[in-house]
Write a protein that binds this DNA or RNA. Structure first.
Lengths: 194, 194
DNA sequence: AAACGAACTTACCGAACGGTAAGCAGATTC
DNA sequence: GAATCTGCTTACCGTTCGGTAAGTTCGTTT
């Protein structure tokens, strides 16, 4: 049941790319962490860009799969949305890494705007918008544009997530905990009682 | 009235750091863009980190100054907040660069959490929270925690801002324009009619 | 048992990286 | 007018970067 080197390289690259960004990560570092040579990595991916693309593809699959599992566990679109917001608000390590990767992509994509991000974000966003639209058909959030509503939620959640280390350091652990509570309360208020 | 080399280096570094991040920017590139040697840059800043710190300091000053100018133009806290949200929602080039720098800092700061970001974000956040608290004393937004409410707005605005190139490319120019309208409408709705 | 392809290894490579050392022109100070 | 300081320059350095070339090892196929 041991993972093969290729997928272990992707996992390790995901950690380092999310932590240090594309330019801040060297393929040598990735390979060394697994105890293999840099050329073993290049044997599987030929270039650094292709390794990065593999990481993004993996991240996209993760996001879509997560959404799919939520869809299967809950029938009502509104419940699906609130469950989704709840999950990404309290992410595990992997989820947090994927969110950071996503944000880095948005930043780096600022003028590049290449094709990689297209499939990385597109299907996931579309699926989410689909949920909001279904919820609207069920009679919720009707005063809002679906995409704007969704983006608003995503922005608020993800921005707070990546700010957490800074906020902790800025205001201390216990002050931060009450901030987090207030943040979650505001989120729940929007999703549940709008 | 010509700017000296040092501040021109900061300006150019701000452009490149915001576009490509810390690791994606070389001090050679920065110097070359101004037609001076790399050692001219090192003469003024001694290390790349110090150049980066100078850029962050400049960015922090810009944010605080922007806020100050809004405070002086409007008396009521609620009006100050709505004006602020409006301004950063439609940023000029410099504002956009500063916002991107800020987001990059949050991402890179994820585990580093060093002192640099402390002064970079701290006073600005405190000033903004102060405005929200004043608005609450005037009878607005009373159902929310000030920090959570502010962070919610900041997140929604900034996340949408950095997504613009990707959204344009994903859905086309005219679809994006209507998304933007819906996004602005939602924002105005929150700030004005809560 | 010969051939083969996948999964690596060691040995390199040129370019770019951040940074040091030394010098030099020109304005300022003593 | 000699010395000094500022703002640069060219020359150079060791390290690391992504990537190439050429094996080697080993299980599988023929």
């Amino acid at each position: 049941m041991k993972k093969d080197t290729k997928s272990r390289l992707i996992d390790e690259a995901e950690i380092l790319f999310s932590r240090n960004g594309f330019y801040g990560t060297s393929i040598n570092d990735v390979a060394k962490k697994l105890g293999v040579s840099k050329q073993a990595l290049l044997h599987h991916f030929t270039t650094k860009e292709k390794l990065y693309a593999a990481v993004l593809e993996e991240a996209a699959n993760y996001l879509l799969q997560q959404l799919d599992s939520i869809k299967q566990s809950h029938n009502k679109a509104k419940k699906q949305l609130s469950e989704f917001i709840l999950e990404i608000s309290q992410p595990n390590d992997k989820q947090l890494r994927v969110i950071i990767l996503l944000l880095r992509e948005l930043l780096d994509n600022q003028e590049r705007a290449d094709k990689v991000s297209k499939w990385f974000l597109g299907p996931w966003l579309d699926a989410l918008v689909g949920i909001v639209e279904q919820a609207q058909r069920d009679g919720h959030y009707e005063q809002y544009d679906p995409m704007a509503f969704l983006y608003h939620l995503l922005g608020a959640v993800q921005y707070f997530l990546i700010s957490q280390p800074t906020l902790k350091q800025l205001y201390g652990e216990e002050a931060f905990e009450s901030q987090k509570k207030a943040h979650m309360a505001l989120l729940v208020n929007i999703v549940e009682h709008t």
